[in-house]
């Protein structure tokens, strides 16, 4: 099983049971097809996406598992962050449908051939997809929610220490009774 992968791909050994290899968007379907027919990595167990905003790319990870569930292989595919669609794997793996649906909602990635890209966990969401790095949770919360009243007496501890030191200093310089 491993020899085929070693022979044909640049395999990265992450741990003894976890491997990774990089593919381009164009190679993905072909590579998946080759791997599922020639090796026992024939189950898609997770579809991940990481937003590397500073490098202007998304890194998709297709996590494959073998039939014995003993080894994992991750196919990594970097795509541009905007206006890029991926081919859907729904025909290859039934479970890919819902995973793609989730990534479509959370990152705004389109998947060609997936008919189910409607609302997943969010309902009527018209802001930018929330898992993208440019979506600022704090700004969203500040705009949409109120904070509990009665917490305005919070003090900045560093400021208080400075104040106290200054007060102690001035008390020393002007001794009482002078």
């Amino acid at each position: 099983m491993m020899s085929y992968l070693e022979e044909h791909y640049e395999l990265i050994h992450k741990t003894p049971r976890l491997f990774a290899l990089h593919v381009t968007r164009e190679q993905l379907l072909d590579t998946l097809h080759q791997i599922t027919t020639h090796t026992s990595f024939d189950t898609l167990s997770q579809l991940t996406c990481t937003d590397w905003i500073e490098e202007e790319r998304f890194e998709l990870g297709y996590m494959l598992t073998n039939a014995l569930r003993s080894h994992n292989l991750m196919l990594k595919c970097s795509i541009a962050r905007d206006k890029v669609t991926m081919p859907s794997l729904a025909l290859l793996f039934a479970q890919a449908e819902v995973m793609e649906r989730e990534l479509h909602e959370m990152f705004g990635i389109g998947f060609e051939g997936n008919e189910t890209l409607y609302d997943f966990a969010l309902e009527g969401w018209c802001d930018i997809p929330p898992m993208r790095r440019e979506f600022d949770t704090l700004a969203y919360v500040n705009a949409h929610y109120d904070f509990r009243e009665g917490r305005e007496d919070n003090l900045d501890v560093k400021e208080e220490i400075k104040k106290r030191k200054a007060a102690a200093k001035s008390a020393k310089e002007t001794p009482s009774g002078a």
């Binding site: 509990r148 917490r151 007496d153 919070n154 003090l155 501890v157 560093k158 208080e160 106290r164």
Partner: peptide
């Protein structure tokens, strides 16, 4: 957690004069 001013100093090593108060809604 908010750090709020203490009424009366109980620990001379407390440099800021503040003690924590906790919002149990959070």
């Amino acid at each position: 957690i908010d750090m709020i001013a203490i009424d009366k100093d109980k620990n001379p090593k407390n440099n800021s004069g503040c003690i924590p108060r906790i919002d149990y809604g959070r």
